[in-house]
Amino acid sequence: GKMTGIVKWFNADKGFGFITPDDGSKDVFVHFSAIQNDGYKSSDEGQKVSFTIESGAKGPAAGNVTSL
């Protein structure tokens, strides 16, 4: 299901970062391709987002990331 969290950091040059879930669980990796914004796929530190957890090649990753 959908979770909410805060972007801990995001490196636009490398195209990835981490989200800290609101439920206190482990930080989740986020790749720019998962960000659902139109246009520039980046996110700012401290941005509140909703997301799903997908199982990626390197473990859990955020999917369907949407700014709230």
Rank of each mutant, 00 (worst) to 15 (best):
D13A: 14
G5M: 05
Q47L: 11
G46R: 08
K41G: 12
E45R: 15
D13M: 13
V49I: 04
T4V: 07
Q47H: 12
F10D: 00
D27N: 07
K14S: 06
S42K: 10
V28M: 04
V7R: 00
F51H: 00
G15C: 09
I6A: 05
D27M: 06
G39H: 10
G15R: 05
Q36K: 10
E45K: 15
G1L: 12
W9H: 01
D27V: 06
K41N: 11
S50E: 09
F32Y: 12
D23W: 05
S43T: 15
A62F: 02
P60F: 11
A34L: 03
V30N: 01
N11W: 09
S25M: 05
T20H: 07
S50C: 12
K26N: 10
F32I: 14
F16Q: 00
E45M: 14
E54S: 10
V30M: 13
G63T: 14
F29H: 01
T52R: 05
E54N: 09
D23I: 05
K14P: 02
S43I: 15
Y40A: 09
S42L: 14
S55N: 13
G1M: 12
A12T: 11
I35R: 00
T66L: 09
G5D: 01
E45C: 15
D23C: 08
A57Q: 10
P21H: 02
P60A: 08
F32Q: 09
Q47P: 05
P21E: 02
D13V: 14
G63H: 14
F32R: 12
D27H: 05
K8P: 01
S43D: 07
K58F: 14
W9L: 00
T52V: 11
S42V: 13
S25K: 05
G59E: 02
N11T: 03
V28N: 00
S25T: 10
K8E: 01
S43A: 15
T20R: 13
G17N: 02
T20L: 09
D22L: 07
S55W: 15
I6R: 11
F18G: 01
V49G: 02
E45F: 14
F10M: 03
G15H: 04
P60C: 09
A62V: 03
D13K: 14
V65H: 01
K8Q: 03
A34I: 04
G5V: 05
F16P: 00
G15Y: 04
G59V: 03
K58A: 09
V7K: 00
H31P: 05
G24Y: 04
K2M: 11
V65C: 04
D13P: 05
S25L: 04
K41T: 12
T4E: 03
S67E: 08
D23M: 05
D13T: 13
D13H: 12
G5F: 07
D22K: 03
I35Y: 13
G46H: 10
V30Q: 01
L68I: 13
V30I: 09
A62Y: 02
M3T: 06
S33H: 06
E54R: 09
D23Y: 05
M3K: 11
S67C: 13
T66E: 10
V49H: 01
G59H: 05
I35E: 03
I6Y: 11
I19A: 00
E45I: 15
G17A: 05
T66D: 04
W9S: 01
S67V: 15
D23K: 05
I35P: 02
V7Y: 05
G46Y: 09
D44Q: 15
W9I: 02
D23G: 06
G24K: 05
A57T: 12
T66N: 07
D23N: 09
F10S: 00
D22G: 04
S50M: 10
G39S: 11
G56Y: 09
T52F: 08
G5W: 05
N64E: 06
V65R: 01
H31C: 10
M3E: 03
V49N: 02
L68C: 09
S33V: 04
T4D: 01
T66F: 07
F32K: 12
G63Y: 13
N64A: 07
E54D: 08
T66G: 04
P60N: 08
Y40M: 11
F10I: 03
N64D: 06
G39K: 10
A61V: 15
K58H: 12
G5E: 01
K2H: 10
G39F: 13
S50N: 04
G15M: 05
K58R: 13
Q47Y: 11
T52I: 11
K8G: 03
G59R: 07
H31T: 04
G63I: 14
D44R: 15
S67W: 15
I35L: 13
D23R: 03
A34Y: 05
D38E: 12
H31V: 05
H31R: 05
F51P: 00
K58N: 11
S42F: 15
G39L: 12
A12C: 14
G56R: 09
I35V: 07
D23V: 05
I53H: 03
G15F: 04
K8D: 01
G17C: 06
K26V: 11
K26S: 11
N64L: 08
G17P: 01
V28F: 04
K41F: 14
A57L: 13
W9P: 01
I19F: 02
P21K: 01
K14L: 13
S55P: 12
S33R: 07
E45G: 14
A62P: 03
E45D: 09
G5A: 02
P60V: 11
K26A: 14
G56Q: 10
G15K: 05
I53R: 05
T20E: 06
V49M: 03
S43K: 10
A57C: 13
T52L: 07
K14D: 03
K48H: 14
M3F: 11
G46V: 09
F51I: 02
Q36A: 11
W9C: 10
S25A: 06
K48Q: 08
S42E: 08
G24Q: 04
D38G: 13
S67R: 14
I19N: 00
Y40P: 09
I19T: 00
A12M: 11
A62Q: 02
F10P: 00
T4W: 07
I53W: 08
K8T: 06
S55H: 14
N64W: 09
T66W: 06
D44P: 15
G5K: 01
H31F: 09
P60D: 08
V7N: 02
V30Y: 15
G56F: 09
N11D: 11
S55A: 13
A57R: 13
F51G: 01
K48M: 09
K2N: 08
G59P: 04
G5N: 01
G56K: 07
K41V: 11
D27G: 04
E45H: 14
T52Q: 06
G59Y: 07
N64M: 08
T66P: 02
T66K: 11
D38M: 14
P60G: 04
V30S: 01
D38V: 12
T52Y: 08
K2D: 04
F32W: 15
S50F: 07
S43N: 09
V7D: 01
K26P: 14
G39N: 10
F16L: 03
F32E: 07
H31N: 04
S33C: 10
V28G: 00
D13C: 15
F18E: 01
G5C: 07
D27L: 06
D22T: 07
N64C: 11
K58Q: 10
W9D: 00
G5I: 05
G63F: 14
G56T: 15
L68P: 03
G1A: 12
G63Q: 14
F29Q: 01
Q47R: 12
F29A: 00
L68E: 07
N37E: 11
V28Q: 01
L68Y: 08
N11V: 03
G24W: 05
A62K: 00
D27T: 04
S67I: 15
T52K: 03
G56L: 07
F51T: 00
E54H: 14
A61W: 15
I35M: 13
F18H: 01
A61T: 14
S55I: 15
I6G: 02
S67G: 09
G59W: 07
V28A: 01
H31E: 04
F32L: 10
P60R: 14
E45P: 15
N37I: 13
G46M: 09
M3I: 09
F18C: 09
P60S: 07
K48G: 06
M3C: 10
D22R: 02
I6D: 01
I19C: 04
I53P: 02
I19H: 02
A57G: 09
T52W: 08
K26Y: 07
N11K: 05
V49C: 05
D44M: 15
D23Q: 04
D13S: 13
P60E: 07
G39Y: 11
K48Y: 11
S43E: 07
L68G: 04
G59A: 04
S25C: 07
G39R: 09
I19M: 01
G17T: 02
P21L: 04
G5Q: 01
T66V: 13
D27F: 04
V28E: 02
F29L: 03
K8H: 07
G46C: 13
A12V: 12
M3Y: 11
K14M: 12
S50G: 04
K58E: 06
Q36R: 09
T52S: 08
T52D: 07
K26T: 09
T4G: 03
S33D: 04
N11A: 07
P60H: 07
V65S: 03
F16M: 03
Q47F: 10
P21A: 03
K14H: 07
G1N: 12
K2E: 07
F18S: 00
A57N: 10
Y40S: 09
Y40H: 10
G56S: 13
E45L: 14
A62G: 02
A34T: 06
D44G: 14
K58S: 09
P21Y: 05
D13N: 12
S42P: 11
V65M: 04
G46K: 08
P60Y: 10
F16R: 00
Q47V: 11
L68N: 06
Q36D: 10
